[in-house]
Each structure stands twice: as C-alpha cells, then as structure tokens.
C-alpha cells in the first residue's frame, strides 16, 4: 500500500523536523535514499518550486513528493501525514498551556521567550535580506562598496516600506502583487 506508506513516512518527517520548512530537507534526502520515490535532483527542483509558490516549504515538498509517487491521492496523503503530528502535538501543548495560564512562572517564562522569538524572526528576515538586497560576490569581485547592495531592489524595498507606513489600510497582498509586477517589468530575477 503505497498510500499508507506515504502517509506514514511523512508523519515521520513532520514528527522529527523541528524549526521550519528547510529542516525537513535531511529527512527528505533520507527518504529518497530509502524509497527511490524521488531523486536528489527532484529535491533540488522541489526547493526551487517551493520558493516560487505560496505556502510553507515543508508542505510544498510533501505535496510534490506525494504527487510524483502516487498522483493526487499521494499528494493529499503525504500532506496529511505532515500535518498529523503537528496537530496532535500542538493541541496537547495548547491544553497544557491553558492549564498553566495565570501561573506567574509561566508568564515570566513567556516574557523572556518573546524577545527571543522576535529575534529568531528577525534573523530569518536577515537571511532573506541577504539573498535579496545584498550581492556579496559582486562586492568581493570588484572591491567597490557600491556593488555590495542591489540598488533596484533596495529602492523598491524603501518604496514599499514608505508605502506601508503612509497607507496602512492597504492590504499587504496588494504590495506583494505590486512587487511581483515591478519584478517582471524590471527583470528582478536576473
């Protein structure tokens, strides 16, 4: 039963990958070696596709691997497998948390934990900024400091930032759509 096997294998991926989509990668490579459902080249392809479509990367990977292995049912079952442990574990944690809500020590722990959570989000932001606004190789090649930043991208970023500050009512999705159009018009991908 390939479908059950897919479900089971992606439960394991969901269960053991801690810390976001790319953390699923080592498990996918392992799965590829053990099952030959997809190749290492497929995984590289999946990463590119996951980065160019909406949705969590781990989910996209599960769907892609499931579909290439067993069609639409495979796509659905692999994704369900990935979801299952998250739903169970988080539901348990939610209940434990609710039980301890109001406990001063738990509240205190969260006061320390919140700035850490925001720091991790900011650090993830830095890693996107690094590949989007900065061109380290160009700077290293030329030694010219003005080559360090990708000026068109920085300009768009500043405009988007000002736009969101000046028009907070406009939905972020419209800014996303606008930047896609700007990207196409000015060839941001090259």
């Amino acid at each position: 039963m390939i479908l059950l096997r897919l479900y089971y294998e992606f439960i394991k991926v969901g269960l053991f990958s801690v810390g976001g989509g790319l953390a699923t990668l080592p498990f996918l490579y392992d799965l590829s070696d053990r099952t030959s459902w997809f190749t290492h080249a497929d995984i590289a392809n999946m990463i590119a596709i996951a980065e160019s479509t909406p949705g969590p990367i781990g989910v996209n990977m599960a769907t892609y691997a499931g579909f290439t292995t067993a069609g639409v049912p495979g796509a659905i079952l692999a994704t369900m497998g990935l979801i299952t442990p998250a739903v169970i574990i988080i539901s348990i944690i939610f209940r434990i948390l609710n039980y301890f809500m109001g406990n001063p020590y738990v509240e205190a722990a969260f006061k320390g934990l919140r700035p850490a959570s925001i720091a991790l989000i900011a650090a993830a932001g830095i890693s996107v900024i690094k590949v989007t606004l900065v061109d380290l190789p160009a700077w290293q090649a030329s030694g010219n400091l003005s080559d360090l930043v990708i000026w068109p991208a920085v300009l768009l970023g500043v405009l988007l930032f000002l736009g969101q500050k000046l028009f907070p009512k406009i939905h972020p999705v419209l800014f996303i759509a606008a930047s896609a159009i700007v990207g196409i018009l000015f060839h941001f991908g090259s």
Binding site: N45, A122, V128, L156, P172, I176, A180, I181, I184, S190
Partner: peptide, 26 residues
Amino acid sequence: FADYAVVKDAFGGIRVCVCVLVVNAV
C-alpha cells in the same frame, strides 16, 4: 515552473516585499 524567466522575475520582486513585511512585523 521555477525556471521560467517571468516566474524568476516576479519572485525577485516578491522577495523584496517579503523583506519589508518581515521588518514591519518585527
């Protein structure tokens, strides 16, 4: 899909927006 020039360009733009969105959220 990910190899089309249009897709690459669009996501070059979207990534800039993602940077700004994350900065705002932080």
